[in-house]
Nucleic acid binder design. Structure first.
Lengths: 193, 193
DNA sequence: TAAGATACGGAACGATCGCCCCGCTTGCAA
DNA sequence: TTGCAAGCGGGGCGATCGTTCCGTATCTTA
């Protein structure tokens, strides 16, 4: 009857601790190396056995997804903050560049976002949805006050974000985007001919 | 004495044929699937054994590099053509978007170009150098006539290219860049404040 | 504190993949 | 045509990696 109800059996203290440790370590490692790192490496750095990782996350992809979901929600929270404290134009651009920076420092996130348009193994769909809605809001507000050109859909900005992440990552740690930032920003504002 | 001289032992007819077949097949397969495809897959599709692939290309990376080098030289040739037949602004933008399209349809090339800034296993350095020089030329000409904003180095445009490839690839086959193309183009022209 | 449930570690399994080897085939020259 | 070097196929080796399994250690509860 209540089969679809989450069975909330409370975890044992050490289990909860280990789970958190694994999640945190996975974030660091995926951020540094991308999805490609062996699970054993994560387990080793977290100071647990591989079996422990698999007890908490049924599969490598599930672990990755959990990490990405965290990061995405983090960004959504940032957006809420920006909406409350900045004017629409500022909020939009601040969010956009914050997203780019996040992706530049987190290879795993960048990979996940770049793949999210594809068929297979998309990251947590609800998280992506929330992210998109948030982004859409910010965009609409910015467009309403003329800070961003019209004729731009969320998908466009989402794609632009992926592109900027790729640029930033391409640059490596040697300096940020520099002029490229201006180029994109000018383009988004809407160049009058 | 002549140790560094290329020993040009003429290949046997079937060997030359096979080599060409492998190269061609590798291009198709890398383009479709990226560097990740197993060598055996390429061998199978080319109708040869894995051993044959390795006789002609000492390593998987070497094969990949040969393919990428081909594509890069192809682009360089296109650039020469554009310089001869178009005005500087047109030539630059045509080349830029041609590069983006090339990368969008060729996953292997896109991967190679995105990685080229990194330390390990960079693609054929001379080809990259030629490509950069060509690109630099086109850029300088376009800047000289005011078709592209100043303060932009080759590296900037190179990074922008990588970013646009990522966008285009993110979009998938469902339509091209659309508005994003305008955004980038406007940004490159130089937004007046 | 003792019993039982829960979680742990890490060895082991199976699949994948890059690369090598060797017995056989094929093109080329005399 | 024949001899032989050059080339070929594909099975196999070793390494990597995701995932599972199970004997042991640890937490919880009574």
């Amino acid at each position: 009857m209540s089969a679809s109800q989450e069975s909330v059996k409370p975890l044992r203290a050490d289990a909860r601790r280990n789970r958190a440790r694994v999640l945190e370590t996975a974030h660091e490692v995926f951020a540094a190396e991308g999805f490609g790192v062996p699970i054993d490496e994560i387990a080793r750095r977290a100071g647990v056995g591989a079996g422990t990782v698999y007890r908490h996350f049924p599969t490598k992809e599930a672990l990755f997804e959990a990490v990405v979901l965290d990061r995405l929600d983090h960004l959504v929270a940032l957006a809420a903050d920006l909406v409350a404290t900045r004017d629409p134009g500022d909020a939009f651009f601040a969010f956009f560049w914050a997203g780019v920076d996040e992706g530049a420092g987190d290879k795993g996130l960048a990979e996940a976002m770049a793949e999210a348009g594809y068929a297979a193994a998309v990251l947590a769909p609800e998280a992506e949805k929330r992210f998109r809605n948030t982004f859409g809001d910010l965009l609409a507000r910015a467009q309403a006050v003329g800070a961003v050109r019209g004729g731009l859909a969320v998908d466009d900005v989402r794609a632009l974000l992926v592109g900027c992440m790729a640029m930033q990552r391409y640059r490596g740690e040697a300096g940020g985007l520099g002029v490229l930032r201006e180029i994109v920003q000018d383009g988004l504002r809407g160049g009058r001919s």
